[in-house]
């Protein structure tokens, strides 16, 4: 691992300033569960790490009208065990409780996961599947506009995710088919029925998290797994690797979507 400068700013403004002064070559460090492995393998060699550790106010979970607001620094373990989350969007607590492993969940954060935008991560499925809003130090970005590509988001190099606002769901569930090796999602499908309608978001299968609108339409009129049993997802743009080829992934999207709908219906 290459060396770097390490900053522990006390405020968001200081953190933004530190990022700015690193000329786009600095990186924010939250829980580090994605970033540190990247640094160890020298897939990235930032000149500076700006730790969010000392910045207060980013680890709260609260109800905000029809939204559940979760601070960016909340760890997966914190979200998984939060009564507020369990009571409002139980599917989100469950999803968080199955990210990585217990040790990773004790360090990894919501903001870190969302900003990293790993195409096989679990949180992006919930963010997109619930139609959440990503709040940053300077703006609010709708989920539909956030995951723009392979590890790609519209975040500017000095922009900091501060919270994610999840709309309360009438029904929601996440079904994951995990890689037996890495435990990342080979296919993970988040299905939700909220005030904004029905959404079906898929992680792991493609170069980025995506929605399956055909399933959404079918579920909007009949929220049952039967309604989507004949909807096939094309394998054309899906990932293919030693564990799962594109066709298998396409098949799993259907299976996991049906299971998520069944789970959402309890």
């Amino acid at each position: 691992m290459q060396n770097f400068e390490f900053h522990r700013p006390k405020t968001i403004a200081e953190a933004v300033a530190a990022l700015k002064s690193s000329d786009g070559d600095g990186k924010l460090l939250a829980g580090g569960q994605s970033l540190i492995p990247v640094l160890k393998h020298e897939l990235a060699m930032p000149s500076a790490l700006i730790s969010l550790a000392d910045i207060g106010g980013l680890d709260e979970i609260r109800l905000d009208g029809d939204n559940l607001a979760i601070g960016a620094k909340c760890t997966h373990a914190q979200v998984a065990s939060s009564d507020v989350v369990k009571n409002t969007i139980g599917a989100l607590a469950k999803l968080a409780g199955h990210i990585g492993d217990p040790q990773v969940r004790n360090r990894g954060t919501l903001g870190g996961s969302v900003a990293h935008a790993d195409p096989a991560a679990d949180y992006p499925a919930a963010v997109l599947g619930l139609g959440a809003t990503i709040k940053t130090d300077r703006r609010a970005i709708a989920a539909d506009d956030f995951f723009t590509g392979f590890f790609e988001t519209p975040l500017e190099s000095d922009e900091i995710v501060t919270a994610v606002l999840f709309p309360k769901a009438e029904k929601a569930a996440y079904a994951k088919f995990a890689s037996p090796a890495s435990k990342y999602a080979i296919v993970g499908v988040f299905v939700a029925k909220t005030g904004g309608g029905v959404r079906v978001a898929v992680t792991g299968a493609g170069p980025k998290v995506f929605r399956v609108t055909e399933m959404e339409t079918a579920l909007a009129s009949n929220f049952s797994s039967d309604a989507i049993k004949d909807i096939a997802v094309s394998a054309d743009d899906l990932n293919s690797d030693v564990e799962a080829g594109a066709e298998y992934r396409a098949h799993l999207v259907g299976v996991m979507a049906r299971r998520a709908v069944d789970a959402a219906n309890g």
């Binding site: 580090g32 540190i36 492995p37 040790q103």
Partner: peptide
């Protein structure tokens, strides 16, 4: 519990 290979000493 955390993985000490995935945390910096400075953290």
């Amino acid at each position: 519990s955390i993985k000490s290979c995935t945390m910096l000493a400075v953290e």
